[in-house]
Write a protein that binds this DNA or RNA. Structure first.
Length: 382
DNA sequence: TCTGGGGTCCTAGGACCC
DNA sequence: TCTGGGGTCCTAGGACCC
């Protein structure tokens, strides 16, 4: 059966949402991102991109390139809500929809050709217009036989583009494109390939599996298949989170150990709170430390029993931090994470009365936060 | 005006077990 | 009388994505 997989990509999604909230931003160079000295751009309008502004670029550099750039901090909670709404909306049009990220969805139209009068390309344009009308969000849509070709194709037609790649023409469509449009080709892989004068996808298409594997190792096979237009065509509807973390780059580097521990406590608290909201406990605790010279280390420790208790996690975080923080250099960033989840056991089955007491305290804290906001209450600090 | 924050997956080496 | 082989789990770092 012929597969029909569409990829929908919202154009500079965060900026588009900010423009709904404040229409005066329409038509102007806008970036959503950190506004402070240490901020970076997470989404740039096309007017800003014309000046060379890109996401992940330091805000200062962006302002150098585009002095009239309007930088807004943005509100992530809102983006997530709108994204969820759009997902539910799209579910009315295809039997299977995958939310690939906050601004990307896949839709599987396989078997729906007749339902849409054998005109899926026409449906793509209709869908694009509907998203614009119902959500005031510009988007790009591509339809092809698999996920990766559709994803590459939306990138080619942005913004507000729409394209269909017919079955059998995938390889031909990809041939002239730059290697850096392939998902998974980042800075390092790009550089490595260019060393061998491999600059366009057609250059990869000519390689043997052995050759590309000598250059890229085990990933080689994936890149060769992708270049040939072969990719997955099964949507993954169920996504299971594997880690919960919280990190913070300080406004100013910090050298004081007590101050650093206080920050670690706050990070721990928020990670544990989020873990409890999922009803989970984590077994492996991770610490991230970035010095002022940007060198970054991570340390983790696995406990014998999973936990979501701030106190337990902080004890572990504190001990690995004190061991890891060896250089006499100010600290730029600290992070705390929890992985290796299991379901938190039913409270009523607890073997230890002490644990029950502790669980009651944490439940009470969480209830207050839910009612009055995340900052309503904090347990004792260091 | 040097470099965010949330993730995933992979690798390589070591510990440990049988 | 100097060293096997398979499997699993853990740790640290790195590439990549949005």
């Amino acid at each position: 059966m012929k597969k029909y997989i569409a990829h929908i990509d919202l154009d500079c999604f965060f900026v588009s949402v900010e423009r709904i909230k404040d229409p005066s931003l329409i038509g102007k160079p806008v970036a959503v991102g950190g506004t402070g000295r240490r901020g970076v751009v997470s989404s740039a309008s096309y007017e800003a991109r014309a000046f060379g502004v890109r996401s992940a670029m330091p805000t200062g550099q962006a302002l150098d390139l585009c002095p009239n750039l309007i930088v807004v901090h943005g509100s992530h909670g809102e983006y997530g809500k709108i994204s969820k709404k759009l997902y539910r909306f799209l579910c009315d049009y295809a039997p299977v929809v995958q939310q690939a990220s906050i601004d990307e969805m896949y839709m599987d139209f396989t078997g729906c050709e007749k339902l849409y009068n054998n005109d899926l390309p026409g449906l793509m344009r209709t869908l694009q217009a509907l998203v614009k009308r119902e959500f005031s969000l510009p988007c790009s849509i591509a339809l092809s036989s698999n996920k990766v070709v559709s994803k590459i194709a939306t990138g080619c037609v942005k913004p507000e583009g729409c394209i269909t790649i017919e079955h059998g023409l995938e390889k031909e469509f990809l041939a002239p494109l730059d290697i850096n449009v392939i998902p998974g080709v980042g800075k390092k892989t790009e550089l490595e390939l260019r060393k061998y004068d491999i600059n366009f996808i057609r250059d990869i298409q000519k390689l043997s599996k052995e050759t590309i594997e000598t250059i890229l190792g085990d990933h080689g096979g994936y890149f060769l298949r992708t270049a040939m237009g072969i990719g997955g065509d099964t949507l993954e509807v169920e996504w299971i989170r594997k880690s919960i973390s919280n990190e913070n780059t300080f406004g100013k580097d910090i050298s004081n150990k007590e101050e650093l521990l206080t920050h670690l406590f706050d990070l721990t608290e928020s990670v544990c709170y989020n873990t409890r909201r999922y009803g989970w406990k984590g077994k492996t605790i991770k610490l991230k430390l970035r010095y002022s010279d940007f060198s970054t280390i991570t340390r983790n420790v696995t406990l014998s029993e999973p936990t979501n208790d701030d106190k337990v996690v902080f004890e572990a975080v504190k001990s690995i931090f004190l061991k890891a923080y060896t250089r006499k250099m100010p600290v730029r960033l600290l992070g705390v994470g929890l992985t290796q989840f299991s379901e938190a056991a039913d409270k009523s089955l607890s073997l230890f009365p002490e644990d029950d007491k502790r669980t009651h305290v944490l439940n009470a804290v969480d209830a207050l936060r839910k009612k009055f906001g995340d900052d309503a209450i904090h347990t004792g600090s260091v």
